[in-house]
Amino acid sequence: MAVHDETNQELRLFQTGEHPCGYWPERQARDLVLDPQDERLGTLYPMALSWGFRRSGDLVYRPHCQNCRACVPVRIPVARFAPDRSQRRCLARNADLECRVLPAERTDEQFALYQRYLQHRHARGGMDDHGPHEFDQFLIGSWSHGRFMEIRSPTVDHQRGRLLGVAVTDVTELGLSAVYTFFDPEQDKRSLGTFAILQQIAWAQRGGLPHLYLGYWIHGHRKMDYKRRYHPLEYFDGRHWRQADPGNEALQS
């Protein structure tokens, strides 16, 4: 399949064969993928985000399943975001933590935390045997716009605090994209996943960027349904981004 970008240059899209769905194992999935050999991928990526695509390593894809439309691209218009009571409690609970944005370069400390997270959250899920190469391939890639936002315990006596979480985040002129977050599985009470998103929202606001892209929302999926808790929220209907609210049928079906 070929389409044209804003400069009227041809883009090649491929449809993958069927493969087991990563969200509903009993279902078969397919994806639309931008040509992985296209040397313009890094330049095209922001536009692809606006079309509901997502990045995994060097792969820019969007679910395109024959009989399922469960994956709904969503984003937060950060200028209008207001945390709810639960999110304000999360911010207060983690007010002692320190966040800093770094180049997307793997460290031994980050990789050790990544392994612990996968072994706890995705045991026997196909990712828990990831090594350094898989880390780089999945989270960084060769043309990445990515940054690593580290979340650490407080600095004491000029000694850097313990690494508690990393939010892998792509930076584009259209906004930030939350690629993946991993954190200390022993820190459940801190709700570090929520805290990371709130910090990414604040990061986008400071940078004057319009959106934080959250990837795909899936109704009823225990690991994906949390995204509807951020308001306001916009969803992509295949042609346009539209405002969603808690009762919007577009996020119920």
Rank of each mutant, 00 (worst) to 15 (best):
Met1Val: 10
Val3Thr: 11
Glu6Lys: 13
Thr7His: 15
Asn8Trp: 13
Glu10Ser: 10
Glu10Trp: 09
Gln15Pro: 06
Thr16Ala: 11
Gly17Val: 04
Gly17Lys: 11
Gly22His: 04
Pro25Arg: 09
Gln28Glu: 13
Leu32Glu: 06
Asp35Lys: 02
Glu39Cys: 06
Arg40Phe: 09
Thr43Ala: 13
Trp51Gln: 14
Val60Thr: 10
Tyr61Pro: 12
Arg62Pro: 09
Pro63Asn: 03
Asn67Ile: 05
Cys68Lys: 04
Ala70Tyr: 06
Val72Gln: 14
Pro73Lys: 05
Val78Pro: 03
Ala82Ser: 14
Asp84Ala: 02
Arg93Gly: 09
Asp96Leu: 09
Arg100Leu: 03
Glu105Gln: 12
Phe111Trp: 12
Gln115Thr: 14
Arg116Thr: 03
Arg116Gln: 15
Asp129Leu: 12
Pro132Leu: 08
Asp136Val: 08
Trp143Asp: 13
His145Val: 05
Phe148Thr: 03
Met149Gly: 02
Met149Glu: 00
Glu150Asp: 11
Val156Tyr: 04
Asp157Arg: 11
Val171Thr: 14
Gly175Ala: 07
Leu176Pro: 06
Asp184Thr: 08
Lys189Thr: 08
Arg190Ser: 10
Leu198Asn: 06
Leu198Tyr: 02
Gln199Leu: 02
Gln199Cys: 09
Trp203Cys: 05
Gly207Tyr: 02
Gly215Cys: 00
Trp217Tyr: 15
Ile218Thr: 06
Gly220Pro: 02
Lys223Gly: 05
Lys223Phe: 09
Arg228Gly: 11
Arg229Asp: 10
Pro232Tyr: 00
Tyr235Ile: 06
Asp237Thr: 07
Gln243Asp: 13
Leu251Cys: 15
Ser253Val: 07
